[in-house]
């Protein structure tokens, strides 16, 4: 525990407004974006290495993730009918503007790649689209960390170094898990390796983040967010361990894939909740700013 910080405030009221992004939309999108992005990269690599069944799974997962994710984002707008205003400007200072363009590209390309795969029409176009998602995929999986960090929300902004790796790990684990679950196990080897690596990256990034943040890291450890982050850690570590020994066992594969998916979801929901908690208590706004001034 960090010792109780002394500070003054206006009747204990928060300085900041809470994030408007709500459950399940926001965090579910973060999960789906990660799933889509890494699935695309897996589809590219599976194409090159001749893992046909895994390539098919990855193409479909990438398309579904991007489409469903985009749907959640639109549903969360205050004025959903105006969603196309997102493509009114191209604005590098706004991670949401950049993200809209990244997601538009990722959605279109992965949609083309999946439909040519399933219909068999124009396979060359599909292959070109998959290749292009090799670029948009990693961005789709990681830009969301910048999206959250580029705010005044203390628990998000101060974590801008670790959040991209936490989300990258979570995305690797998510896509690896879906690859394991939806591909014949004899062909799912690379997906299992991706899942294990994702679990390692996600676990390490989470621990480093909470350690480094100090007082502002408290929301990741306490209350509802803390519970989710702890659940995420157990599920991710357990799922990762299982994936490394699952081999071609049906039961272990199912357990591992489900645990990793649940872990990734807990991470996303936990991070959203921690951000909300850090805006609700003026302590997390005022004390770090005072300490900064004292230096």
């Amino acid at each position: 525990m960090v010792p109780e910080a002394e500070f003054q405030s206006y009747y204990g009221r928060p300085v900041l407004k809470p994030p408007v992004w709500k459950e399940p939309y926001g965090p579910a999108y973060l999960y789906l974006g990660g799933l889509s992005g890494v699935s695309s990269v897996m589809a590219v690599m599976a194409e090159f290495t001749g893992h046909d069944r895994l390539a098919r799974t990855a193409r479909v997962a990438a398309a579904i993730g991007a489409a469903a994710g985009a749907g959640l984002l639109v549903a969360e707008l205050g004025r959903p009918a105006r969603f196309l205003n997102m493509l009114r400007v191209f604005k590098p200072t706004s991670p949401m503007s950049m993200g809209s363009w990244i997601l538009a590209a990722q959605g279109a390309l992965s949609g083309v790649a999946a439909s040519t795969e399933l219909t068999g029409i124009l396979p060359a176009v599909g292959d070109a689209a998959v290749l292009a998602t090799g670029l948009t995929g990693p961005l789709t999986a990681t830009y969301t960390a910048v999206l959250l960090a580029d705010t005044a929300v203390p628990a998000w902004h101060e974590a801008y170094r670790e959040l991209p790796f936490l989300f990258a790990g979570s995305a690797l684990a998510s896509a690896g898990a879906v690859g394991m679950l939806a591909t014949p196990r004899a062909q799912a080897g690379p997906a299992r390796v991706v899942a294990v690596m994702g679990a390692v990256v996600e676990s390490v990034a989470g621990v480093v983040m909470e350690r480094r943040l100090g007082l502002v890291g408290e929301p990741y450890r306490l209350g509802k967010a803390g519970g989710r982050m702890r659940a995420a850690r157990v599920l991710t570590a357990g799922g990762g361990l299982l994936a490394s020994i699952a081999g071609r066992s049906r039961t272990l594969t199912a357990l591992s894939g489900l645990a990793l998916t649940a872990g990734a979801l807990c991470t996303r929901f936990g991070v959203l909740e921690a951000g909300r908690t850090s805006t609700a208590d003026p302590k997390y706004t005022i004390v770090p700013q005072r300490q900064r001034q004292a230096v």
Binding site: G37, V38, V41, M42, M45, A46, F48, T49, H51, P95, G134, G137, P138, L139, A141, T142, Y143, A145, V146, A149, D150, Y160, R161, L163, P164, F165, F167, A168, A171, L172, G176, P190, A191, V193, V194, M197, G198, V201
Partner: peptide, 21 residues
């Protein structure tokens, strides 16, 4: 700085998947 860290994470994603395959 945020984009630099995210860029590093994006490259790590690509690298990790490549290594896995």
């Amino acid at each position: 700085a945020m984009w630099r860290w995210a860029g590093a994470a994006a490259l790590s994603v690509a690298g990790a998947v490549a290594v896995a395959f």
